[in-house]
Design a protein around this nucleic acid. Structure first.
Lengths: 201, 201, 201, 201
DNA sequence: GATGAATGAGAATTCATTCAT
DNA sequence: AATGAATGAATTCTCATTCAT
């Protein structure tokens, strides 16, 4: 995710490497996580980071700049986690676990809401989602490509959508306090994956 | 305390039937749909409805009151659509169609985001989600209860979560412009349902 | 206090005798007592009286009309209490007791604040204060007129100011939580009155 | 948590020394004096100071912050005046003069009304009143402590309450236009003080 | 690098008042 | 006698952003 590195779209004071910059991004993510994206204002971020509001603007001239940076950092972390999952001996199940309970999911819902309101960010989010999807499809292709023909089988592309969708649904409903059917859905996915990818013991 | 003869106890200004009231709710839903729930401010709603902001407050003293009314109307519409789906000869597939492409889904995502931030509304949304889920589980139980044992089978409760989750994921990603894997996921669900509930032709 | 009776200054719907009218006045005094005069708005009064806001305006076209009516009722009650005090065998001490702990004092502070903001009401309050003072001076004149010459003595007019002032000060400070010196001041007044008006036993 | 290096912890925007800050406080006091504490709104203060309302909020985030600052400045001025009074050769009479005609009294009544409604301010005002009282009691103790036994005598603590109470009453009534008995009360206090503290000529 | 000052816009309410029925 | 609807003004507060130092 070196998307921002080449940039300087307008003016980009505050080197990418600045500690203060990192502090601000960290604080922003915290605010979003705790109070929602709508609360990610210059003021509140500054308060949380124990910095002056002006300093936030010094590093991130516009709110979009800030939000974008936060998203990019989050996306990079997400990428790292996914890469780690893929690097395990059982990538599909590791991904499924990532989708269904990783704390990243909380943020991804906020980003989604954010995307609807901020065109500048929407693009980045869409690009990142697309890239993740493409990568996963390739992975699944390698791993279960030949299973497609089975009566139970699923195209790799579909599998990615299905796992991500069910995982996110469980998280989102859980946030609301709705849990009926969750354990059944999880159990079904587990068994389904067992059929698609018999666990090697 | 028989003082309350004139009865303003709950100040339900603007009878449920008021035209203006309906107009405001309509405008609010439009705003939410187009600009996200965070945009549902008195001002913007009034602008869209071509009314004075004060009038919006006359009918809905607080923003929560307004948002709640909008959600309730939407939930009622949703209920009607679901009832219609259930009343068809093929309720499961009708529901799946409802989940995956009904325009209601757009709003349901906004409501979800809303619920996370507004406790007053969260309760209502959670209650409604829960009720929908319960109803669907009962329905699926009746229709596919005996299929549970099959190798492909799925507990009714899980099925509700899975269909809703995949449908919502497809819609949400679609809103972002991400579509990879969607048709494959839809095709898979269709075939899966064919196995669970062989279509009667 | 039949000041308002002849009136009809603008329009005076809602006969003086109406029960609803009395209810509104009662509710307004309650609101003022509990939340201060600034809270005495049409809405809040209506809420407290469990009436529709419009009805309050029906009886009291303007807020000044309402506030005036409330003050007048309060002044009348105050007058009654003072008359009762005077009718006792020991009018001066009864008055002193009235000044120093009657719940009326709470309201009188609010009315004072009110007077500063509402010229229409200021006049009435000033007139009432003046009348009370005049009446008391006459009373004190009758009772202690001859004491003036004593080394300890006090002109009747001054006595009225002094007793009212000390009483009000004790109440106002008490509302703040400041009580240092209060019991000493009260004791002093008691002894002073004993010297001015030896208690007849 | 050594993060707080840059230190915005308490966000004390606008150093105590700022000219604008002083201007706002000055304007607020003027508004309170002329229109009562309830009129001390952002808008009106800004108007009086010929500043934008936002700027007032920049210096005083909440109305309580503003009101508190104004009170504190006033209290400081009051303290200075009292200190000056005490420093004269005849502190009791100087204090009595301060109580009965200093323009500060006008504000102190407003503050009192304010204190009843604003808990945040109440504390400060109560603390200040208490401190003033304590200081005066000590002073009076030193000056007239031995007079306590006299037939005319008054405990120092009571004296403070009495002088302040009568002074404030005269001022408050004066503001309403009521003056009957004032000169008599003042004359009586003067003579009383002469007996308690024979003037040294 | 960093920061204080300033500002215009907008948000959520509250209110008094008017009017038509 | 009573009431629902409507409205303009005010209030408190939050925010993004600009600018000068």
């Amino acid at each position: 995710m070196s998307v921002a590195a080449h940039g300087a779209t307008k003016r980009r004071i505050g080197a990418e490497s600045s500690e203060t910059r990192a502090l601000i991004i960290e604080a922003t993510e915290l605010v979003i996580r705790e109070e929602g994206y709508a609360a990610a204002s210059t003021r509140r971020v500054a308060l949380r980071a124990d910095l002056k509001p002006s300093l936030v603007h010094y590093y991130f001239p516009t709110t979009d700049d800030l939000l974008l940076a936060v998203f990019e950092r989050g996306a990079a972390q997400s990428d790292t986690m996914i890469a780690a999952a893929i690097a395990t001996g059982d990538p599909v199940r590791a991904l499924w676990r990532f989708f269904s309970d990783e704390s990243r999911t909380a943020l991804s819902v906020e980003y989604l809401a954010l995307a609807i309101r901020r065109p500048a960010i929407r693009e980045k989010i869409a690009a990142h989602s697309e890239a993740m999807r493409t990568e996963q499809i390739a992975l699944f292709q390698r791993l279960i490509g030949e299973k497609l023909a089975g009566p139970d089988g699923c195209p790799p592309a579909g599998l990615s959508v299905i796992l991500a969708g069910i995982g996110r649904a469980i998280f989102m409903e859980g946030a609301l306090g709705v849990t009926a059917g969750h354990s059944e859905a999880i159990a079904w996915v587990d068994q389904w994956l067992d059929r698609l990818l018999p666990p090697v013991d």
